[in-house]
Design a protein around this nucleic acid. Structure first.
Lengths: 199, 199
DNA sequence: GACTTTACATACCGGTTTGTATAGTTACAA
DNA sequence: TTGTAACTATACAAACCGGTATGTAAAGTC
C-alpha cells in the first residue's frame, strides 16, 4: 500500500496551494496527457512556484500518484451519488451506465483517465499503477455487489461481463463522440442479466 | 486520406533501412510508448543515422503514422489468416476471439497499440489519428460481415456489441494478465448472438 | 566518366525536461 | 519579539528533445 495521504506542508483545504496544484493537474493531465505537461507549465497554471509543488509532492511521479488517488476518490463519490434512491437491481445498474454515459458525452471527454495513465506510465513500479489497479478493482466490486443482490449464480462473472461492456464502451466513445456506445452496452448488459436470472 | 505509401527513398525491402526503422519503431513504440522513445534512441537501435530516418519519414509524426499503418496492415493479415477455413458463423467469430486471446496472453502484451497511440497523440490533426480510426473501422466491418452472414436483423448493432466486449477485454487483460477476459467476452458474445438469431 | 541515390558520421541548433539551491516575503502564534 | 511554516522569486544544472547542416563513401545508371 502506497502513501496517498498528504505528505507535504499544508492541510489541503479548498483554495490552498496543494488543492490548486491537484485541480490543475487533474485538468491538464487529462486534457493533454501526463507526459505532455511539464512541471513548469503545471506550476505556472496553478499559480504556484515549482518549489512549492516539489515541497508538497516530492516529484512529478508523486504528484501523478496523488492526482490519480484524488480522481479515484471523486469517481467513487460519483457512483455513490448516482445510486442514491435506486433500489431494484436494474435501477442500480442503470445508475452506473447513466453515470458513464453522462461522462462520455460531456465536453472534453478523452477516455478513462486511469486507462490513459496506465498507457503512459510504462514503468512497472510507478506509484500511480497501484492507484489505477485500486480504481478498477473498486468499480468491479461495485458491479459485483449489484450482481449479487440480483441473485446471480456467479455474481463476479456477470459483473466482469458488465465491466467488459463498460470499458469497451468508453474506448469506443473516445472515437465516436455520442451516447450510442453506452446505450448499446447498457442494453447488452440488461440482456445478459435477464438471461442469467431467468427473467 | 493521408499518404501512407513509402514517401522517402528506398523501396522498403526486408532488411532495408526503411524496414529496419519501422520494425524498431513497432517494438519500441509499443513497449515504451511513443512519447517516451526519442528519435535518437530509435535511430540508434535501428542501426541507422537520424538523417536517414528523417530522409524516409520527414518527421517523428510521419514515422508514427507510417508505423501505425504498418501495424494496421499486419492486424488485417492476422484476422484473415485466422479465419482461413472457418465456415460457420460461430467458427468465424471464434477465430476473431481466439486471435485476440493469443495476443493478450503473449509476452509483452501492453494493450491495443492503436488505442494507446490515441491516448498519446492528443493533437486532433496528428497524421496517425486517421490510421487509428481506419483500423477500428476495419475491425468493426469485419465483425459486421460475420453478423450479417449469421442473418442478424441488425448486423451492425450486434457487431458493435461484440466490439465493445473485445475492446473491453483488451483493456481488462492489460491489468489481469490471463485469458479470462477474452474467454468471458467470447462466451458473452455467443450468448448475445444466439439470443439474436433465436438459437 | 558524370551523375544520382542511399546511406553514412559528426556536430550543432534552440528549446524543454525534471529537479535543486538560495534568498526573500508574509502571516500567525507563543 | 522572536520563531516558524508556507509560500514566492529567480537562477541554475544536466540531460534530453526534435530537427538540421555539412560533408563523405559506396553503390547503381545513363
Amino acid at each position: 500500500m502506497v502513501e496517498t495521504k498528504p505528505s507535504g506542508p499544508g492541510t489541503g483545504e479548498p483554495g490552498s496551494a496543494r488543492q490548486r496544484i491537484l485541480d490543475t493537474a487533474s485538468r491538464l493531465f487529462y486534457e493533454s496527457g501526463i507526459q505532455a505537461v511539464g512541471v513548469n507549465t503545471l506550476a505556472a497554471r496553478a499559480g504556484v512556484t515549482k518549489v512549492t509543488l516539489y515541497a508538497h509532492f516530492g516529484s512529478k511521479d508523486g504528484l501523478v500518484a496523488a492526482h490519480l488517488a484524488e480522481r479515484d476518490r471523486r469517481w467513487r463519490e460519483t457512483l455513490e451519488r448516482a445510486s442514491a434512491g435506486r433500489e431494484t437491481t436494474e435501477q442500480r445498474l442503470a445508475a452506473v451506465f447513466e453515470s458513464y454515459e453522462e461522462w462520455t458525452v460531456a465536453d472534453g471527454f478523452r477516455g478513462c483517465g486511469f486507462v490513459n495513465a496506465g498507457v503512459e506510465l510504462t514503468a512497472a513500479d510507478h506509484p500511480g499503477r497501484e492507484v489505477i489497479e485500486r480504481n478498477k478493482e473498486g468499480t468491479r466490486t461495485w458491479l459485483a455487489e449489484i450482481a449479487e443482490a440480483a441473485g446471480c449464480s456467479d455474481p463476479s462473472d456477470v459483473a466482469e461481463e458488465w465491466f467488459l461492456l463498460l470499458e469497451g464502451a468508453v474506448v469506443r466513445a473516445t472515437l465516436r463522440r455520442d451516447a450510442t456506445p453506452l446505450h448499446r452496452a447498457h442494453r447488452a448488459a440488461l440482456r445478459l442479466l435477464r438471461e442469467e436470472t431467468g427473467g
